[in-house]
Design a protein around this nucleic acid. Sequence first.
DNA 1: TCACTTTCATCGGTGCACTGACGATACATG
DNA 2: CATGTATCGTCAGTGCACCGATGAAAGTGA
Lengths: 154, 154
Amino acid sequence: MAAVDLTTHPGHLARRLQQAHYLLWNTMVSEETTSPQYAVLNALVAEPGLDQRTVGERVGLDRSTIAEVVSRLGRRGLLDKVRDPQDGRRSLLRLTDEGLRVHRRLGVRVARMNQVFLAPLAADEQAVFIDLMRRVADAAEGLRNPAEPTAAPG
Amino acid sequence: MAAVDLTTHPGHLARRLQQAHYLLWNTMVSEETTSPQYAVLNALVAEPGLDQRTVGERVGLDRSTIAEVVSRLGRRGLLDKVRDPQDGRRSLLRLTDEGLRVHRRLGVRVARMNQVFLAPLAADEQAVFIDLMRRVADAAEGLRNPAEPTAAPG
DNA sequence: TCACTTTCATCGGTGCACTGACGATACATG
DNA sequence: CATGTATCGTCAGTGCACCGATGAAAGTGA
């Protein structure tokens, strides 16, 4: 009695979606470099020397998680980490040549995987899907950062 | 150079979506009972006495993960676990009264949270979103189970 | 009856993700 | 300069999610 159909629950679907993507990534992109790790590499390609916290913010990882991911990437020699001489609290990150190589090599496979992932949808549906996911994710993340008022608050 | 815009990558969005849902769940539904745990409770409300592996299949958890989730629920006294006398490999699961109570109590909050989660979308968009997520997730999971041919294959 | 194979649960290992607490550094005010 | 506040990184703890290996139980076939 009172059991619910979870296939209509967006949260449950989001979880299944993420798991499906995880598996697809493992088979089509890389078994060594995970999707969050690739996101970090990508952020540092765009902005070399960025500090750790900001990288985490860019890719959607909190401070604890970005610390672990960065630690793994550093252990594999894909990035260097140095204290900011201007601000001793910050860690500045920069890709090594090997990090750049890995990022470049994975790029093609990531694009292929995205195609396979979205293949069940028609082209116009794919665009709608991306848009809807982004709007929901943005809104939910906005609930967490409770305002960030540019103008003066009340 | 060659950095990519991750906000157009469905996998990255799926991860952010799942994280957003995780946070919303924690604040609006429960800090003790997680979303996967609720899914297990729900599956057992629908089919009491189901075996552990099938429950995992219903809610999208592999054998290792369902074992851990069931272990936590059992430790909290929300379900009972007994060996199948007909098949000594299987574990049969059944909710306790407390498990039923928790499931019933969370139902209302889950519905409220789903509304908040989907609030940024118009009503018709919400239906489309659910449909698209389900189709992508189903297809990707289908890639894993390599056929299950009902009729004779080629 | 005796292998062979399949299925289920468990265990160890890895990785992501959160919370809460901590120490170090920086900044802001008096 | 000293005190208080905010920020950054880390650590400990919990939970989900995967893989591969192992062992127990069941089924299959010679």
